[in-house]
């Protein structure tokens, strides 16, 4: 007992004080960590349930208790996804739209961000604040006119209609500008002395130095575009042009009275590309969100 007490630093402490300290510091922390663990399990449970139920026999798919570990996986649900909806085509559509929007936004945002950070021209500050102000405008406030414009351009019910309006980005411009501001100005002077023109200064000197920023923006845009539901719902009505979230909603409708395992197989497959991208880019996704919070 005596030795336990000395562990807390003071030889005059009694055993009672030691127990008190234990309750206050150790036990409290263990309880917090334990409660957090329970909470983490609850948060992850829907993923585990989705994957495990997607492999259950169709007739058992909605029976309780949930079977968390599948001993005899039934893969027929996955095959049936492709029979019910043009799943492969929809995955392809999601890829086309997402990759086009990511590349397009990287292009427009790095150009505009560089202009605001490193090029001097009349009206620069005014234009910058005008663009920043548009970040306040919610998608819903513009969706009806954008749909009218898209229709007049003949782009309603095409993948182009999902891509083109998503290319300009106020947030991306802000993000890229912040990173370009972090690159010292001396680099430009050195490159000019070496005979580079302004275009080369941008493309060969500054752009390679902000690749982390490009990765951050790419991650945020990938996540947002891949998961977008509202815009495709309004712009697209041909199931062969649906993106994945619309396809899943469709699949759920077909399966209203059938097996939910098929729907969950579709959900599981739709998660694979995002999870792969996340494994490689988690760091950038987190950095991007923090950028907004700390510097915004």
């Amino acid at each position: 007992m005596q030795s336990t007490a000395t562990n807390f630093g003071s030889p005059r402490r009694t055993a009672g004080a030691a127990v008190g300290d234990f309750l206050r510091y150790r036990l409290g922390r263990w309880i917090v960590l334990l409660v957090t663990a329970v909470f983490a399990v609850i948060v992850v449970a829907p993923f585990a349930w989705t994957v495990s139920t997607s492999m259950r026999l169709p007739m058992e798919s909605f029976s309780v208790p949930p079977q968390w570990i599948v001993l005899n996986p039934d893969w027929s649900n996955y095959a049936r996804v492709f029979e019910r909806i043009p799943f492969f085509q929809q995955i392809l559509n999601s890829f086309i739209v997402t990759i086009a929007v990511v590349i397009g936004q990287l292009f427009t945002a790095s150009l505009a961000g560089y202009a605001f950070a490193r090029l001097e021209f009349p009206g620069r500050n005014l234009l910058f604040w005008l663009i920043m102000a548009t970040m306040m405008i919610p998608l819903q406030a513009t969706i009806i006119p954008v749909f009218v414009i898209i229709s007049r351009m003949g782009l309603a019910n095409t993948l182009w209609g999902l891509i083109i309006p998503a290319l300009p980005t106020a947030f991306g411009t802000f993000l890229m500008r912040q990173y370009f501001l972090g690159v010292p100005k001396d680099f430009e002077e050195a490159a000019i002395i070496d005979g580079a023109n302004q275009l080369q200064v941008f493309g060969r000197v500054y752009l390679p130095l902000v690749t982390p920023a490009l990765a951050v923006l790419a991650m945020l845009v990938f996540n947002g575009t891949w998961n977008d539901f509202f815009r495709p719902l309004i712009f697209i009505n041909d199931p062969y042009l649906f993106t994945i979230p619309l396809g899943l909603n469709d699949l759920k409708g077909y399966m209203a009275t059938g097996s939910i395992s098929v729907v969950l197989a579709g959900v599981t497959m739709s998660l694979i590309p995002v999870v792969i991208v996340y494994i490689f880019g988690q760091r950038y996704l987190i950095e991007g969100i923090m950028m907004g919070g700390v510097k915004g």
Binding site: F116, I131, A141, V146, A170
Partner: peptide
Amino acid sequence: RRKALLGYLFLAPTMLGILIFTAGPV
């Protein structure tokens, strides 16, 4: 002057896009 012109050129896609698809629609 070259830098200023490049600035406007670099800004053109974003400005035009925001004008057509965000500011105008509001």
